[in-house]
């Protein structure tokens, strides 16, 4: 579904990503782990078009998308839930969700009715969001904001979801909840690329995983294989 080949990207005059390659098959959950500063978030940003890759290819469902702007890649079916969640603080929870489905809703009127089914699905997954649907997103707690960010990505009915550090800054109990959610998404057949610092938890839910070091994929394999690997142990920490 998503193929990344020899991707290079960076900020200003520093190249962060030096030829990363990875694949996400349809319906699978793939984890991208590695030390802080290894280039995980940069990979995500380069895939979704938030930064322009300097070299390399990104294929989404067989279609090359590298070099397009983020909005265009999103329209082609990629949903990126960014690091730090980035919910639209002043807007209500429901508006946040509706904007998630921006691409296939009418631009002016009648969009609420058209999004009904998706909204219900997200509310079922996260009943807390239904309780707070009128509340401004910025006033939610960190865990609720993370649920909203995931829900917003789901609203787009995307081919692939990129999930960047969903557990960041959350209390341990909430982190467990987040991973439970990811498991449920997996059962629902959602294709997911997951960046996580909690490597062990990530490996528990993933079908396949890549370990990044210094802007490159250092090791890859199934969770079972990786759990035996010394270098992966190092990546737990950073």
């Amino acid at each position: 579904m998503l193929i990344v080949d020899n991707l290079h990207a960076g900020y200003g005059n520093s190249e962060v990503l030096m030829g990363a390659s990875l694949q996400v098959k349809q319906g699978s959950v793939v984890a991208l782990i590695g030390a802080n500063g290894a280039g995980k978030t940069t990979t995500m940003r380069a895939i979704s078009g938030m930064i322009r890759p300097t070299r390399g290819a990104v294929m989404l469902d067989g279609q090359p998308v590298q070099g397009h702007g983020a909005a265009r890649i999103a329209r082609l079916g990629l949903a990126h839930s960014p690091e730090g969640r980035k919910v639209f603080g002043p807007l209500s929870v429901e508006d946040n969700l509706l904007l998630g489905a921006f691409n296939h809703l009418p631009r002016f009127f009648g969009f609420r009715a058209k999004a009904e089914i998706e909204l219900e699905r997200v509310y079922e997954l996260f009943p807390r969001l239904r309780e707070r649907k009128g509340q401004a997103a910025g006033t939610l707690s960190g865990g609720e904001q993370q649920m909203l960010a995931i829900g917003r990505a789901l609203m787009a009915k995307p081919k692939v979801i990129l999930l960047d550090e969903p557990s960041m800054g959350l209390a341990p109990v909430i982190v467990q909840e987040v991973f439970n959610t990811i498991r449920r998404l997996k059962e629902a057949g959602i294709t997911l690329l997951l960046v996580e610092q909690f490597a062990k938890s990530a490996l528990e839910v993933a079908d396949y995983a890549y370990v990044m070091e210094h802007g490159n994929i250092a090791v890859e394999g199934t969770p079972a294989e990786l759990n035996q690997n010394q270098r992966v142990l190092a990546a737990y920490l950073g």
Partner: peptide
């Protein structure tokens, strides 16, 4: 307030990058 385009407008003012990720062209 009442159209999706208008909400997109507010989304861009709240967080430009995140809006782009929703497919909203800033």
């Amino acid at each position: 307030r009442k159209t999706l385009m208008g909400k997109a407008f507010e989304a861009v003012s709240a967080d430009r990058d995140a809006a782009e990720l929703m497919g909203i062209s800033a």
